[in-house]
């Protein structure tokens, strides 16, 4: 059977690299005595596929991996047994069952489905003018910035990758701009802020394009809007919390766990 596990990575585990998290979950399935399926060959490896890696020092509430099991286990049991073997700050919050691959079907995993991400970015010193500047940014049609990737530096339109900007202030949520691409409610936002490390309980929430096609990392967004606002940016004075990862379902971007493929 195939399952998709949504997990949170917070506190001290925000300094674990992607490979270490993979190793952690492989061992966790063994501790939970859940029958992982392995690849064939002399060096069998678990059939485990992680969604987008989370940058070091970021916390996350909606992180994902897909895994194949050798036999069917009730998803409530999977959740219970896995939860029983977790360490502090790295725990699961949802298990969904995915349909089995049909013979010869191309294997699509969580990673390939991703088209969006939501971040809560908190600043040690939030400039008073920032909300207004963010509003200004959102009303622009285009804002070009330099984007550096493995293949080099190129210009990209930051504005088109930004679909909603909200302000979170001690439980109050204010919409600065929202083009309606992402499906989410205030309750979704509050729930997925669990584990975030916020200065003054305040954050800028951004819904951004993500995945292999178009990807706006949280810091690129932050640098971009700061440069738009004409405020100097220092990465040391911010925390970033990834609230969820999204994929496309019926013209909307919805959290990955809602997509059953």
């Amino acid at each position: 059977m195939r399952v998709r596990v949504r997990f949170e990575k917070t506190g001290s585990t925000r300094f674990l690299g992607h490979l270490d998290v993979m190793r952690y979950f492989q061992k966790a399935f063994r501790r939970a005595e859940l029958p992982i399926a392995f690849s064939e060959g002399y060096h069998p490896h678990p059939l485990l596929s992680f969604a987008q890696p989370l940058s070091l020092s970021f916390t996350g509430n909606g992180e994902y991996f897909d895994i194949e099991l050798r036999e069917f286990v009730n998803p409530e049991d999977i959740f219970k047994r896995l939860s029983g073997v977790m360490c502090e700050d790295l725990s699961i919050n949802r298990v969904t069952v995915l349909p089995d691959y049909k013979p010869n079907e191309k294997k699509i995993t969580g990673m390939a489905l991703i088209t969006g991400a939501a971040y809560a970015i908190s600043l040690a010193d939030m400039p008073e003018s920032l909300p207004e500047k963010l509003g200004g940014f959102f009303s622009e049609k285009e804002y070009k910035i330099e984007k550096t990737t493995k293949t080099g530096t190129r210009e990209c339109n930051l504005r088109e990758g930004v679909h909603a900007i909200l302000l979170y202030d001690g439980g109050k949520i204010t919409r600065i701009g929202d083009d309606g691409t992402f499906a989410f409610t205030d309750d979704d936002i509050k729930a997925s802020l669990s584990g975030a490390m916020l200065f003054d309980n305040r954050a800028v929430i951004a819904f951004l394009d993500a995945g292999s096609e178009k990807n706006i990392p949280a810091d690129l967004f932050l640098q971009g809007v700061f440069s738009y606002a004409g405020i100097p940016f220092d990465a040391k004075t911010r925390t970033v919390h990834r609230m969820d990862l999204f994929g496309d379902l019926e013209e909307k971007k919805v959290p990955l766990w809602m997509i059953e493929s």
């Binding site: 506190g11 001290s12 585990t13 300094f15 674990l16 690299g17 270490d20 952690y24 061992k27 966790a28 501790r31 070091l56 020092s57 073997v85 360490c87 502090e88 700050d89 040391k236 925390t239």
Partner: peptide
């Protein structure tokens, strides 16, 4: 502090919290 952890190789050497 975070900035120290982010400027060293393998910060998980210093954070504990293992199973």
């Amino acid at each position: 502090p975070d900035d120290v952890l982010l400027s060293v190789e393998k910060p998980a050497r210093y954070t504990g919290g293992e199973v």
